[in-house]
Nucleic acid binder design. Structure first.
Length: 463
RNA sequence: GGCGACGUGGCCGAGUGGCUAGGCAGCGGCCUGCAAAGCCGUCCACACCAGUUCGAUUCUGGUCGUCGCCUCCA
């Protein structure tokens, strides 16, 4: 099966043709670490990490690179507001970002460069652009000459003559030229040496330099939020391709925005839910389920209702896996049975869906269809444990791609006192002492357990 | 104003020129001392108006509306 992805530059879905057969490099723009990230900031991270899981599972060798922008105007501002060094604030927020995203349970990108650790590459690239005549130094700043890059605007669809300048400054030769290097300003407590004096890199050059440093001059896939398409990715593309004379990214991958209360979740609007708060409150599996339920390019409604839907649909998966585990017991999985066959077909549908522009909703639909088949078979009773075990194993394997394999985790067994109460309840039910049986249900609830009367006897579940 | 995306059933959210998305919620049934879980059945769709077509929710044009970008932004 061929991997197909929508490319924002070509505005169409295309077969992905890797630079090196069997290998894919994926660069995704990370956050500016000036404060806690919100749930919307997590979407590109989740898309990149789950896409990488799918690709690895289907035989690709993948290298994921995601940067941390730890030099930025906002960091100076935030640090001043707190009365601390900007470097300290950036380090603190970088650590917090790593902690928050790690809690999603998807692992880490292979490389996570920081701007503060990438100054040599950045300066080198700026020097190269100046040497090639694509950029010019001006009173401590360095600017990229936009007029020098004819296809500027192709990615974002902007027309040069209708665009407003990014920043008005007399140091520029043309209004649209953007900064590659900015001279240190009064009050900025962090600056680096350069051929143009003390200063810091501009916002866009850092990503080009770090991406090229980690993945080479041409990269397979460049991802990020669609709000970065202009000017950030437009400028990245311009400076990178001006530098190398080659295409920068073979596929530009843009994820849609999270909507919260009808608008894009953003710090400036104030309609945010911090990722750490959401993880505390909802748990990682609910958030990952919510992300997987929508196609990555679509805007995604983030609301109490959609979170509840995500949580309850996870409950359905968890319950099915629990029922399957109960029947499978310790029996080793075996192929060839009817459920194993159905699971293999669901897996094929799952892989095909994800190969087609990472269609996680269709992939999930395949898994839910499998759940219904497995539930129906176990209800009917004529299933072999090995067959159920195989279907369960495949289901968990697919869920792993989305970070939802934890739904199949077998919880610790109930404590002896709960088991004793359950047995006492069985005795009471046998003598039709239902008042006592119901009372025991309440006692179990206090202990944190719920009893379910299944066809082959009662079972305790954590409440 | 310019550029782009989108308007799907109670809600979320896929997809397709004619063939079941899926989840959540609702209703009926089975099972059940109760409850839970599960299974079966079922109701509710493709913003509006034209056009192309044997046939459009799916293509084209228009209208209305929503969102994103054009400024820091995942």
């Amino acid at each position: 099966m061929t991997l197909r992805l929508y490319d924002s530059l070509r505005r169409s879905t295309n077969d992905v043709e890797p630079l090196t057969p069997g290998q894919l490099g994926l660069y995704v723009c990370g956050p500016t670490v000036y404060g806690p990230v919100h749930v919307g900031n997590a979407r590109p991270f989740v898309v990149a990490m789950t896409l990488a899981r799918h690709l690895r599972r289907t035989g690709w060798e993948v290298r994921v690179v995601s940067n941390l922008t730890d030099i930025n105007d906002k960091i100076y501002t935030a640090a001043q507001a707190e009365g601390i060094e900007s470097r300290d604030l950036a380090e603190r927020e970088s650590a917090r970002y790593l902690d928050d995203t790690s809690r999603l349970g998807l692992g880490r990108p292979d490389v996570e460069p920081k701007v503060t650790e990438s100054l040599p590459e950045i300066v080198e690239m700026i020097e190269g652009l100046i040497a090639g005549g694509h950029a010019y130094a001006s009173d401590g700043d360095v600017y990229f000459r936009v007029a020098d890059f004819p296809s500027y605007g192709a990615l974002s669809g902007q027309k040069i003559d209708e665009m407003q300048p990014e920043e008005i400054t007399s140091k520029k030769q043309a209004p649209l030229d953007f900064a590659l290097w900015k001279a240190q300003k009064p009050g900025e407590d962090a600056a680096w040496e350069s051929p143009w004096g003390m200063g810091r890199p501009g916002w866009h050059i850092e990503c080009s330099a770090m991406a090229m440093s980690a993945l080479g001059e041409e990269i397979d896939i460049h991802g990020g939020g669609i709000d970065l398409k202009f000017p950030h990715h437009e400028n990245e593309r311009a400076q990178s391709e001006a530098m190398t004379g080659r295409p920068f990214a073979r596929t530009w991958l843009h994820n849609g925005m999270l909507r919260f209360g009808g608008d894009k979740m953003s710090k400036s609007l104030g309609n945010i839910d911090r990722l750490s708060d959401a993880l505390d409150r909802e748990g990682n599996e609910t958030l990952l389920s919510l992300f997987a339920r929508a196609q990555y390019r679509s805007p995604l409604d983030y609301s109490p209702d959609s979170l509840e839907d995500a949580r309850k649909s996870n409950d359905r998966l968890r319950e099915a896996l629990r029922r399957a585990a109960r029947i499978a017991g310790d029996v080793a999985p075996a192929e060839g049975g009817p459920l194993a066959t159905a699971a293999a077909e669901a897996d094929a549908r799952f892989r095909a869906a994800l190969d087609d522009d990472f269609g996680t909703p269709e992939g999930l639909a395949a898994l839910f269809d499998l759940v219904r088949v497995v539930n129906a078979a176990t209800d009917a009773g004529d299933v072999s444990p090995a067959d159920v075990a195989q279907a369960r194993a495949i289901l968990i394997d697919c869920l792993w791609v989305l970070g939802l394999d934890g739904l199949g985790a077998t919880a610790d067994g109930p404590p002896v006192e709960a088991v004793a109460l359950m047995q006492e309840r069985e005795a009471a039910r046998a003598t039709k002492d239902f008042a006592r049986a119901d009372a025991i249900r309440d006692e179990l609830k206090v202990l944190g357990w719920v009893v379910q009367d299944l066809a082959d006897g009662p079972e305790l579940q954590q409440a």
